[in-house]
Design a protein around this nucleic acid. Structure first.
Lengths: 324, 324
DNA sequence: CTCAATTAGGTCGTGACCTGTCCTACATGA
DNA sequence: TCATGTAGGACAGGTCACGACCTAATTGAG
């Protein structure tokens, strides 16, 4: 009923996003305007960079096609929920390089998601595996809400308060100026300026709880090394153990590569039906052992000894499980 | 530089979707209009149902918050790619009930996705596991493109041509009027009217290849049973196997529940440090075995025999892997 | 407390723009 | 060949969008 022009344009955009053809007369009917105006509106959309394709002749119509710019997505409730759930489930084990964009998109969506849909996302999301792959071991799971709150505070330059659990289990409350959220391997880190300590810190996101933005904005400081990822690497990667793993698979290289997480890198072929993987793994070999098991192909662990131990332990546990 | 009003509104909407506060003066600056006009535009957005929250006082500003309706999402390139990849990866093993919405959203996005982004999605998507969980088993994977083409043709009422592989391996070309895309368990089915056979059929999507919409529209016929899902169930449902699993854990119920995917349901306590899980699993026990292994606690499989077999097989593979 | 910075909203005049109604040209499928 | 669709020009009338200027209310900092 809103006879407003911009409103009508938005409505037209949403109609055209349905993957079907719309005859001008039907559009005119829906939008409560004359067919001439519909043509003008279509022209306007085209001028805005959204390519509306028109098929001529009888049985013709309008349809939005791929162009240079991405038009604003008009989603219905179910689609929005599906995207949110997919993003939550996917953000953790997503492909290298898009985890952060994934979280940004999720933050953007959740910012405007109506509460009734938020409930549905929460209940549905609870049914999926947790966001970050919980390699069975240290239970380092991250609530999707935590990630989105951190992402929002970071990009909005808002001070952030949260409770942090140190390595020794002690919990402290922190007031920080978050600078960047970085995904490294299967862990997330927050590079932030700690207001209490008066210095830069990197926080492991899985140890952050009850985060909330204070609302107070700040002007970003200069990061010590100039780059947040650099700083994170420098502060975090020293001290945590690294392992050089070496595993042989009894399957074609293509198949193994397909079933292995890309973070492991690519195995190299050693024969028609065999290949070998050499890679460096940080911190937790339990995770590595699990991913090897999940490939579903036969393999042999050549090293290091710690990985042999992990795999053997897992194997014996499974064997015990069936011997009762 | 387009001084157009609707264009400016869209731009404002995209600015406000960034999770941060925007002072009116900055918005006026960016949009090249007076502050008064910015206020008017904000009013307009509010009238359209998009709740723009304004914080008063010094250091105030505007920000888009959750409301009743979902505003059109304005995404940048990376976010769009992240959503597409997440949707592709998630659509297959997503939560019950949203698979179809997931595919609809993906079809909507891909319809307008610029080609340069489509390339990125393809290359990134190739690195992830295939869309439908390939439980190591029958290799019934579905290309995401196939699903989106079918979804688009279905909702656009366009005739669909594809090559179909029957159970005996014979390939035939089909011309159909697609009626609905149904997800059931791990499989996807297309309920369509077969123009050559002159009758309704259900097609398994994993056996469809080279689908494309002819562009010719049709008027939907009446489905025999009135409901497509009903029809599919009647024609296809030969009961995919279901298993009643029964597993005992040597750990407190709370810990086990935390490490188990919620889809399994909740185990019940059988003692201080033990609990038992009874649940039904459809179709793939390999997945169940994997998730049990991932709990990282000792357990005993009581049944069924197939699950014992799966776990034993996995255990022996791991043991072999370390015995070299 | 006081000041500064912000949102909120009213009014007014000018000019641009938006709409519907004509009209013609062109493309396409039956 | 005809029906039906898009494409787009011309025009008149009314509307509405913009900026300038004003006052009020709210909030945080000094």
């Amino acid at each position: 009923m809103t006879t407003d022009t911009p409103a009508r344009l938005l409505q037209l955009l949403s109609l055209l996003q349905t993957p079907r053809e719309w005859p001008g007369s039907e559009l005119a009917d829906r939008l409560q305007v004359s067919r001439r105006t519909v043509r003008r509106d279509v022209d306007r959309l085209r001028e805005l960079g959204y390519p509306v394709q028109a098929t001529m002749g009888a049985d013709g119509g309008y349809r939005l096609v791929a162009g240079k710019a991405l038009p604003p997505l008009v989603l219905d409730d179910e689609e929005a929920v599906a995207i949110a759930v997919g993003l939550r489930a996917g953000a953790g084990h997503a492909v290298e390089g898009i985890e952060e964009a994934s979280v940004r998109a999720l933050a953007k969506l959740e910012q405007v998601l109506p509460t009734r849909l938020r409930h549905r996302v929460n209940t549905l999301g609870a049914a999926t595996s947790s966001l970050v792959y919980s390699g069975g071991g240290d239970g380092a799971t991250i609530a999707p809400e935590t990630l989105t709150v951190l992402a929002a505070a970071t990009s909005g330059h808002e001070r952030l308060r949260f409770s942090y659990e140190a390595g020794d289990g002690a919990r402290t409350r922190r007031l920080t100026e978050p600078y960047r959220l970085v995904s490294a391997g299967r862990r997330w880190y927050l590079v932030a300026y700690d207001m209490d300590r008066d210095d830069w810190r990197t926080f492991r996101v899985d140890r952050v709880s009850e985060p909330f933005a204070t609302g107070a904005r700040f002007v970003p400081r200069e990061v010590p090394t100039g780059d947040a990822a650099e700083f994170m690497r420098a502060t975090v990667w020293r001290g945590s153990p690294t392992f050089e793993i070496d595993v042989a698979f009894a399957a074609p290289v293509a198949e193994v590569a397909r079933r292995l997480p890309p973070a492991f890198g690519t195995p190299e072929a050693t024969g028609e039906d065999s290949c070998r993987l050499r890679s460096t793994v940080k911190d937790s070999l339990e995770w590595a052992a699990m991913r090897l098991a999940m490939t579903g192909v036969d393999f042999t662990v050549h090293g290091p000894a710690e990985l042999v131990e992990q795999v053997a332990q897992l194997g014996s546990r499974l064997t015990r499980a069936t011997s009762a």
